[in-house]
Each structure stands twice: as C-alpha cells, then as structure tokens.
Write a protein that binds this DNA or RNA. Structure first.
Length: 421
RNA sequence: GGAGAAGUGGCUGAGUGGUCGAAAGCAGUUCUUUGCUAAAGAACCGAUCGCCUAAAAGCGAUCCGUGGGUUCAAAUCCCACCUUCUCCGCCA
C-alpha cells in the first residue's frame, strides 16, 4: 500500500501518478473513508477514555459499598456506549482498509508514459540476433524435442503445461539452476531454499492478493497457495520485523519451481516452453533503505545481464511504461532474449523496485540512526526463468546436424559440449 | 493421529479480575566518575493508530500467540484455532 499521509497531503499528485497506470482506482472514496474512519476513531477513543477514568475511580472504592454500586450503574452505560462506538469504528476501519489495499503503487517519475506493450522503451541491447537459416526452427520443431521434453506424458501425469524433462535435458535444467545460483552467490546474494506453499497473509503482503488471486493454484483445505514466484516466500522472510539499520541492504537468491494457472492466456503463440503452468526459476530479492533502492535496481539488472552474457544469448532491456507495469511496481525492467528459431523476443526476467509498497503491507521496517522505525524498500528480479532461456539456447545453438552446442559455462558442468537425442 | 505442557516487551522472566504497558535482569542509548580497549553509578530505553504541532514535545486509544465470549472491568476466567516443546504411534 502507498503512504496514506502522502495521499492526504497531496491527493492530486497521487491521482495523476496513479492515472498513468492501467489499474482503476477511486481516490475520492479512499479519502472519504479515511476521514470517516478518523472521525469514528476520535469518538470511540473519547468514550473509551471516559470509561477508563471511571474504572480507575471505581478501583479505589470498597467493593459492595453504595458508592461502588452506583459506579457500576454508571460504568454499564459508559461501557455500552464505548462498545457501540468501537464497533462503528471497526467497520469504518475495515471499509477504509479494503479500499486502500486496492490502490496500486505509484509509478516512479523516471518511468515513461504509455498504455501498452509497444510504449515500453528499449534501453539497451546486447549481442546480435542470429539470422534465419533453414535448420533454425522453433524449439518444438526440433526432431527430438518431444523425447527430451515430454509434454504428452506430462498431460498423462498432470495436465497441459506440466512437461517431463528427460535425460540430458533434465541435467541441463539442473545445470542452469546451478549456474544461476552460483552466479548470484558470487554477486553477493545469500541463498535460501524457501517453502513453495504460502499462506494468505504472505500472498497479500507481496501483492498477489487480492489483485491476482485467479493466477495462483490454491489449496482451499489449508488456505495455502502454490507460489507463482519465489518472491512471495522470500520477501515474507522478514514480515512484521524491524531490521537493524546496518543490516541493509540484504540480498538473497532462491531457486524454486513456480506455479501459474495462466487462466485464459493460451494461444498459438505460447507453444512449447514459451508458457508453462510449472517452471523453474532463480529469483533475486533485495531489502534496502529508501535512499538506495533505485541504485540497487540498476545493480540488480546488471547482475541479471551478466548471466545472459555468460550464456551468450542476445538480449534487450525494456524499461516498462507506466501502463504496463504491475500493481505493486514503482519501476520495472524486462529482459528479453532473442530466440532465433521463432524470431521472437522472450521475456526471461523482470527486475522491479516496489519501493515501500510491499514492505508497508508486509510490515518490514528498519531502525534508522535515530532509532525510529522506517519502512524498507523491496526489490526483486528473475535471475533467471529457466524454460525460455532453455528455448533460446536450443534455438540459437541448434546445429545443422540437430545437435545443440552448449555455451562454455554449461560445458564444464555437463561434462560435454553438446546435447543430442 | 493420540496424550500432556506452554505461548507476556530485542532476549530471559514475574504477574492477585480493577491502581499493569505490565516487576526484575540482560542487551541497547546517553551522561557522570575513575588515566587506561574495562569497571561503577545515574537517567533513558516497545510498537501501532488518533488528536495537537511547521516539527518535536504533549495528550489519548490500542497491543501480554490469534479470534470469539463472560464481566461494569480481562494478561489474569471460558471456548475455538494457531504455534512450540515432551511422550506414544506412523512415515519420506
């Protein structure tokens, strides 16, 4: 959630900032509910204060004395009134919270205007896109693809979008996970292995709820959700905690499988590895103070770019426009690799600064030099999502003999310089 | 899954239904003193929300695992749930 004080102080600035995003919002209602809530609080606290005072005098009276009994009658009235006001106060608070929680984060001023995908700005490109050639095909058309990544048997075991990776392909996935984690470790991120089911409070804190409820697989028996990204459990590591000032910045990395229902987002363009219900990803997460989060975002992005360069995959970096960034995001870069067989850019990472939006929901703070609690800033970025990286590797490194040459960084781990089925 | 025990401030740990935000100790901050990388003494030392402020101070409300209930009044009594520990059973 955003800072309510900021909204009160300058609603028009908040209004125009939010208007740049694609989400609908109702500031006037929020402000009105805030005012109502505060009036209710004043009334309830006043009543409660009177009751407390009466209670105090009562404590000094002898039990059962006439004065005492008289006070009991008075207290009954006060108590009933206080309870009543307290209830209306709670209702007002709930109504306010519900409306307030539905406000998205403010986009940073450095984020360009725009309504859709085509308004995103390419801020850098690395490497050369490979030219078309007769033997370059989409990865799903590689003759042995169905053997190496078995979608058919995945359907049998689970359903569409849950493939089996077989033999050297399974090893290759493991090699990528290893490479990503080790690269992150060398860049100063501490590895964690988090739970992959989270509760409602965690999903709300990072902003998946209530905005994207339908995107997650849920265990309704236990009230738990399969994580759509490691961001959720990892960010919640410090939920409701106050960190010492010298702890920041904290950098963590985590490998997890990720689960997304992707309801209604299927079509001919999402064949093969382009979109799955379950996929593997290494996620990078940072907690910083409010002065350095945008610098840390650049560092994060740089760390992720390093991996793509090591894999020798041509990529570009998009600065997402205000209309295309997510609900909790203040600023977001998308990294896309070029897959030569499809001649398409595939998003493999999204690096974002959430400023204080998630941290405020999650109650993650740090103690500044004066000992005052302040809300931290949170960031995260994929480093990286495996299937699309794999798609690009297969398509870009496919040889005329249908083998796939491995980049140097993977050869050592795999103990071979190419794969072939 | 069965049987017990427990959940209090950063930590340890008192707490009789009313004067308890809550003793005490530790840690922390500031100061005093002693010439020596330390000791002693003193003061301060939780969070959230609201009112008032330019801001602070100040005032008020709330918080003793969570949510209900009893009562004029609950950390204290009752119920449910969650978590932790011990014992038994089962199991990767």
């Amino acid at each position: 959630m955003i800072d309510i004080k900021r909204l009160r102080d300058d609603p028009e600035a908040v209004r125009s900032a939010l208007a740049r995003k694609k989400f609908s919002f109702d500031l006037d209602t929020v402000l009105e509910l805030d005012a109502q809530r505060r009036t209710a609080i004043v009334a309830a606290e006043q009543a409660k204060s009177e009751q407390n005072a009466a209670n105090k005098t009562m404590a000094s009276l002898a039990k059962g004395s006439p004065e005492f009994l008289e006070k009991v009658t008075e207290m009954k009235t006060l108590s009933a009134r206080a309870k009543e006001l307290e209830n209306s106060c709670r209702d007002a608070e709930e109504a306010f919270q519900k409306a307030f929680l539905s406000l998205p984060n403010l986009p940073d001023p450095s984020v360009p205007d725009g309504r859709e995908e085509c308004d995103n700005v390419v801020v850098s490109e690395w490497g050369k896109c490979l030219p078309a050639a007769p033997y370059r095909v989409p990865h799903w058309d590689i003759p042995w693809f169905a053997k190496a990544i078995d979608f058919g048997r995945g359907v049998k075991a689970t359903g569409a979008g849950f493939p089996f990776y077989v033999g050297d392909m399974a090893r290759l996935v493991r090699a990528l996970i290893h490479l990503f984690l080790e690269t992150a470790r060398r860049n100063g991120y501490e590895e964690v292995l988090p739970p992959i089911l989270v509760n409602e409070a965690s999903a709300t804190a990072t902003g998946q709820l209530p905005d994207k409820e339908g995107q997650m697989y849920a265990d309704t028996n236990e009230g738990l959700y399969l994580i759509p990204t490691a961001e959720v459990p990892v960010t919640n590591f410090y939920r409701d905690e106050i960190l010492p000032a010298d702890a920041l910045p904290i950098c963590r990395c985590a490998y997890t499988p990720c689960f997304r229902r992707e309801a209604g987002s299927w079509g001919s363009h999402v064949r093969g590895l382009n979109r799955l219900h379950q996929f593997d990803k290494v996620e990078l997460v940072k907690w910083t103070d409010e002065t350095s989060s945008f610098d840390e975002l650049e560092r994060l992005r740089n760390d992720v770019e390093g991996i793509l360069q090591a894999l020798d995959l041509p990529y570009r970096v998009l600065l997402m426009c205000a209309g295309d960034i997510g609900f909790p995001h203040a600023k977001q870069y998308d990294l896309e690799v070029h897959a030569a067989g499809q001649d398409r850019w595939l998003e493999v990472s999204s690096c974002s600064n959430f400023t204080d939006f998630q941290a405020r929901r999650a109650g993650i703070r740090y103690r500044d030099k004066d000992g005052k609690p302040r809300v931290v800033h949170t960031l995260n970025g994929s480093g990286l999502a495996i299937p699309r990286v794999l798609a690009a590797l297969l398509e870009n490194n496919l040889q005329p003999d249908n083998s796939v040459r491995l980049p140097k960084v993977l050869q050592d781990f795999m103990g071979q310089d190419s794969i072939q089925f």
